[in-house]
Nucleic acid binder design. Sequence first.
DNA 1: GTGTCCTTGTT
DNA 2: ACAAGGACA
Length: 459
Amino acid sequence: MHLIWFRNDLRLTDNPAFSAAVNQANQDHCPLLALFVRCPQQDKKHHRAQSQCDFWDANMVDLINRLNQLNISAMIKTVPCYENLAQLMQVLLESHKIEKLFFNREYLVNEQKRDQAVIKVCEHNNVQSCIYEPAYLLPPQSVEKKNGGMYHVFTPYKRQFIEQLKADYATPLGMPEKVTRPYTHALDSEDIKSDWQHDWWPVGEPAARKLLSEFVEHARYQQQRDYPAVEGTSKLSPYLALGIISARQCLAQALKEQGESAFQSTWVSELIWREFYHDLIAFYPRLVKHQTFKEDAMDHWQHDERIVEAWKNGQTGFPIIDAGMRQLKQEHWMHNRVRMLVASFFTKLCLQDWRIGEQHFMQNLIDGDFASNNGGWQWSSATGCDAAPYFRIFNPTTQSKKFDENGDYIRRYVPELKDLPAKNIHEPSEQQRRDCGYPQPIIDYKQARGQALDWFKSG
DNA sequence: GTGTCCTTGTT
DNA sequence: ACAAGGACA
């Protein structure tokens, strides 16, 4: 009997390990079992948002139903941490007489360590571990500079990336056939129920595929993506983070809709940013230890609990910032433009440690992805790869007027300001704030900007 | 060496 | 006009 272990690849299509496992089972005329392991303590250590854990559970339940239709039985197990996995695996391999274990590689340090330990258990038990490359656009670490080494600047990386991608991109794998030999015995599995009911994040691979095709067909991403009041972004990030759809499927859909020009599109460029940050982690594992990418970057920050709390709770007195932070709390998601604004505000204007912001995002975002989140925060705080220079400081009010001109986004998440006219809503007067019960600004922008420039310059 | 360029800006 | 400095070919 063979075993397919699902992790952050909760899909049946374009899943290399899964397709291979089904083929192998049918070739060997044996059943295939699916395994899902939950590690709540590990999730805590990684600051994984509760919303993402719940969404993972919900998608697992959905996936198991569809696995059953393919004659595949599934087991759910819970252990505290990754280090408990080897022991669990030992028991499972033995009790189910597993011959081959299939899974897709993951590139983060703890995940690699976890998998190495499991591979050892396999070897010890004479079980073959069959490991596949996850369905990135290009395999990690396959894009290098002409003289070798990882790019540290996005633009040349992207140029090279597209060149290689055009020359050789993989067509997404389809859905495998049914497994011909069902497993007929009872399985010792936990019974996890899911009561996921957020309309804006429908559960399951079919729903995700539908969101993808509708987005690619109708979106005006380039024109709309910067306006947080508009549904102009794909909102596919939670699905990408848990592998409910693959990046390759996204590209394939874009190519189908737009032809070769898709390679140059803004949205595909964002997919390449994702690969850039994932590649960086693969090349520089020290990044998972929250070290700055630039070793000599300014990295000593003020620690002001009052500011941190106001920021987290959306009480800074800057409407666009507070709208973003409250959207995060309410929807476990924040519009990308606003993510940049709140991050720039936190690090460059308030001089608070980017790691605090990074962790807060991970703890709250349904789409939390270590590499993208870390890359984004280091970009914002001028400590990272190809980062915004330290003197590039977003003016929250200017940005608000530019990208939320009518104040619709602010009104949605900061209801105490909902009756203010557009010309005041970005920067209400002292009196208006008192009347609305909205805080006075926690910092003075002009003063903070000047202070930040000095602070960064002095290193 | 040497020229060109650098995600999302501000005043 | 301005804000540094470094990556890349």
